[in-house]
Design a protein around this nucleic acid. Structure first.
Lengths: 217, 217
DNA sequence: GATCGAATCAAACAGTTGTTTGAGTTCTGG
DNA sequence: CCAGAACTCAAACAACTGTTTGATTCGATC
């Protein structure tokens, strides 16, 4: 069946883009892992770039739908923590975990391509997130009326950064300390919990002081 | 003078790696921008990979020295905010800003290569940060004795993620809203201030609740 | 002014890149 | 059973990859 080849390509691309990034992954390697012919990607997707978009779309769209759904389901007086849960938890749920509870490959590919951002993906990401980011920022503004909108805008992006970095490196971060005998749980549920607590504290932090220029020097 | 070629190569590499990443930047493009011969990189640095290491080293080492210096200079009872300032401010200072106050290219290259992490850079980064990360985590533990060490470990990495993401995308993040007529200041001082406030709130947040498994489903 | 090492250069290296081609196979609907 | 679409395949495409070579130029030291 041809659909099998198509999803095999998506799966292989997901793994390899996650591990090595977009530019560093070759079509030979990719099609070989999918047990497909070299020409299969261009036949089914058009190009390597279009394949990458499709890899992302199949994961991001459900996540963003779920984010929107949860945001809408929140009562008006919902606290910031619930808003941030609506933003973060969908990433880790919905099959995001391996059977051993560790973070699934697609989490890493989203994080990876989100930061690699090949030129052709810039617009794709902007398109996927623009609307949602504004809705969440507006919602957070209700929870924290003492904070100016620009500050909240920055803070939501800090959360995105922490999320992307964590998705990509969770296994590495944990392994650093485990090499010393310290066991660091890094299953998806633990990470999500840690991240939500951190994000809530960060978003609700008091307004930044103007920095002492002396100290920054 | 030959030193000029060498630094011209470092500067060009810094810019291009920042914009496009390591794998996506070719030697032709790189040497051309530096007004040097194709063979110049291999002559002066040995290989493309070694060039990348050098690009990073020349920026990261001073930053990490300054981080260590500031950490040591802190009084014993210093609050978490000061510890985080010692960690974050050196990134933005020391020539990190363009003349217009925006974030300098090298900030982006560090953020970029930190997330792209070509295999040969894994060990390099680990080596550069391992010791420092532990010292900061230990210091933060003194400021927040109510939090388990693993939680602080995660939170420091969340801060790194927010930092890396911001360094890479500050201009983009700002431009999204400016396209709508909202002026978002994104000079280095503003960003540093926002990030420090966010990081302090996040690191000191109360311990994470165990998540409601229902909601994560 | 000759000598030597450092630096630059154009050219070529062998290998890989993403993509295209056209013939072959497999599958499906009539 | 056959026509036609959907798909797979090996081979070749031109372009580009990082790196090496050997001759040439440059600047300093003796």
């Amino acid at each position: 069946m041809s659909t099998d080849t198509k999803t095999a390509l998506l799966d292989a691309a997901e793994e390899l883009f996650a591990e090595q990034g977009f530019a560093a992954t070759s079509m030979r390697e990719l099609t070989q892992r999918a047990a497909a012919n070299i020409a299969a990607v261009n036949y089914h997707f058009g190009s390597k770039a279009d394949l990458a978009k499709e890899v992302l779309r199949r994961r991001i769209e459900p996540i963003n739908r779920e984010r929107a759904r949860r945001l809408d389901a929140l009562p008006d007086e919902a606290p910031a923590r619930d808003v941030l849960r609506a933003f973060l938890e969908p990433v880790f749920s919905g099959g995001a975990c391996e059977s051993d509870g560790s973070v699934h490959g697609f989490c890493r590919v989203v994080g990876r391509l989100n930061v690699e951002q090949p030129p052709f993906l810039r617009e794709f990401f902007a398109e996927q997130f623009r609307g949602l980011a504004h809705r969440f920022t507006r919602r957070l503004a209700d929870c924290a009326p003492h904070l100016p909108p620009e500050t909240l805008w920055w803070r939501l992006h800090f959360v995105v950064g922490a999320l992307a970095h964590t998705l990509m490196n969770a296994h590495l971060i944990a392994s650093i300390r485990e090499a010393e005998g310290v066991v660091v749980p890094h299953d998806a549920a633990t990470i999500a919990g840690e991240l939500i607590a951190f994000a809530t504290g960060g978003v609700l932090a008091p307004e930044p002081h103007p920095l002492d220029p002396e100290a920054t020097k």
